[in-house]
Write a protein that binds this DNA or RNA. Sequence first.
DNA 1: CAATAGATCATCT
DNA 2: GATGATCTATTGC
Length: 202
Amino acid sequence: MWHDEAAFGVLLKHSAVLDRSFYCRSTIDVAKSLLGKVLVHGATAGVIVETEAYLGGNDLASHSSRGITDRTRVIFGPPGHAYVYFIYGMYECLNLVAEPEGVPGCVLIRALEPVAGIAIMRERRPRAKKLEDLASGPGKLTIAMNITRRDNGKDVTHGPLTVRSFPKTKQPEIVTTPRIGIRKCADWPLRFYIAGNRCVSR
DNA sequence: CAATAGATCATCT
DNA sequence: GATGATCTATTGC
């Protein structure tokens, strides 16, 4: 129902930016709660349909598991900030930092259902044939929404990169599976997606 | 369909 | 010097 450009103004008017308390919870709670929320960057927006939790403690799949370095500093910082990293020499991936300051934990945004700025996203990803190919993966969505390492450390509770919620949206049905593309802790059930959604990655 | 190779570089050992 | 929270094109059945 939002699938056209004019709907962008409606989206902004009827939704509210999530504040820091949303992110200042356990990483798993934040990962699940982000499903159904709307990621907005510039003139593009998409519903978050798939996430993964990367924990502190003994989660060796997490970048934060080796402690604070130049790269992982923001994961240990205050919640509600973006952690963007470069992977495989080609792609950038967007995470949102959870947990109180000093406690590591972040949520990888793995897939979006595009809702506004779709023409712009298609220009950025000309090889995507169908709508569900535009942002159905962590590397795809950063290209479609033009999110790069310049956004690393940015506060997502205000500014050009935010997450919004619609007050009357009910909680979607969530499916839980192991995380994708990792070797360590490969069987931990920390991937979450909206049941039946076509934009979930494969 | 499924499996695999290639692209390409920041980060850490 | 190896690895990796990926994507795409190509090959083979």
